[in-house]
């Protein structure tokens, strides 16, 4: 579906042929400072979209807002999980999602995650005193044993057994299988980034929001993370990621959105955005 983007003109707020996420008029101010003010933004399904912008342009705040970790002053956003993401739990949300659209405005962060929009954090949040394997198992969505009422039953053991092989497969892919019994706290910084990615993948999201997945990772690992990123769309996961380095963005993204002072000042294919005078200004203007 990323091919469909080829015919989309690069201008802020442009409509996409098959959006998975639609953001409308989302605003958040801290005191007098407007941190995020996005008029309209659509993310194309099964694409890798980069979110760029200078420091303090509101990228992480936008992530926090979209995922329910912070509350908006105004605005609303919807997700269209579609059939491919396996993340939808049974319940009223699923009813809604059959119609192809779930309103996320005002929902709790955990609900949003269950609806198929899973994020990672700029400062890695590995659960240090859980084993690497447990970290990944935690993300599995069908584990009924997480309910108190069923935690003493037997059913969860079968589910865990099944999830364990899935988790080991994912760990294998991310090169962490040999450390599956270690505490996550024992991993290196880069390995924690990988573990966080593995965990997010285990949750089988339809939309994956990655906050600087490459920050602080040693160059040898960067290659492998990028490879994984590129494979995600084919597995039914749309990727939206924050990144500073333009080189990295150019090489892997299908579409680039540039934020400046909380607003979208440019979007389009990477090479177009990179040469956009507004973007160049935003980056250069901030440099010392």
């Amino acid at each position: 579906m990323a091919e469909a983007l080829k015919s989309v003109p690069g201008r802020p707020g442009v409509a996409k042929p098959s959006p998975i996420l639609v953001v409308e008029g989302v605003r958040r101010a801290f005191g007098g400072l407007v941190a995020v003010d996005v008029e309209h933004l659509e993310i194309q399904r099964s694409s890798v979209t980069a979110l760029i912008g200078p420091n303090g342009s509101g990228k992480t705040t936008l992530f926090n807002l979209l995922c329910g970790f912070d509350s908006v002053d105004e605005g609303e956003w919807r997700i269209f999980p579609g059939s491919r993401g396996g993340g939808v739990q049974p319940g009223p949300e699923a009813e809604e999602s059959k119609l192809g659209e779930v309103r996320l405005t005002g929902r709790q962060s955990y609900e949003i995650a269950r609806l198929g929009m899973v994020r990672t954090f700029q400062l890695t949040k590995s659960l240090s005193l859980l084993s690497v394997l447990d970290n990944v198992l935690l993300a599995a969505k069908d584990q009924v044993g997480e309910r108190l009422s069923r935690s003493l039953g037997r059913r969860w053991r079968e589910i865990d057994e099944r999830n364990r092989s899935a988790a080991m497969e994912i760990l294998e892919r991310f090169g962490l299988a040999h450390m599956s019994d270690e505490y996550a706290g024992a991993l290196s910084g880069g390995q924690r980034k990988l573990l966080e990615l593995a965990r997010a993948v285990m949750a089988r999201p339809s939309l994956l929001l990655l906050d600087e997945p490459l920050a602080g990772v040693n160059p040898a690992l960067v290659e492998s993370i990028l490879e994984h990123l590129l494979k995600f769309p084919a597995e039914g996961m749309t990727v939206l990621f924050v990144e500073h380095s333009m080189d990295m963005v150019m090489s892997i993204s299908d579409w680039v959105v540039c934020l400046e002072e909380g607003s979208v000042i440019a979007e389009g294919p990477p090479e177009v955005v990179a040469s956009d005078p507004l973007v160049v200004d935003a980056y250069l203007g901030r440099e010392e």
Partner: peptide, 22 residues
Amino acid sequence: SPWGRTVKAVREDEDAARSLGK
């Protein structure tokens, strides 16, 4: 049990647990 695993995850990092739908 998985319940205990989730409780431990909550202790370790609430935001991480939330981001995984807990």
